[in-house]
Amino acid sequence: MTTKLIVHLRVYRAQAKLTQAELANLIGVSRKTINTIENGVFTPSTTLALTLAKALNCSVHDLFALPE
C-alpha cells in the first residue's frame, strides 16, 4: 500500500526562520533531502522524521499527516 503523505515541513521550517540548507546542516543531511521531503518526493524514515520534529521543536504529527 502506498499512501501519499501530507507534508507540512515547509511551513514549520519557515516559522523557524530556517532555509533548507540551514535545516539540513542542523540535522546532518543534504539540502536535497529536505527539498524532496518538502515536495513529497522522498518519504523519510521514522528516525529522520523524529529528528526533524526535534530540530523544529514540534511533533512528527505536526510535520506529517495521512490523507483523510
Binding site: 543534504s30 536535497k32 533531502t33
Partner: peptide, 11 residues
Amino acid sequence: DAAEAAWDEQN
C-alpha cells in the same frame, strides 16, 4: 561532516 550529509538517508 560533509561526508555524513552526502551519505544521508535519501542518498
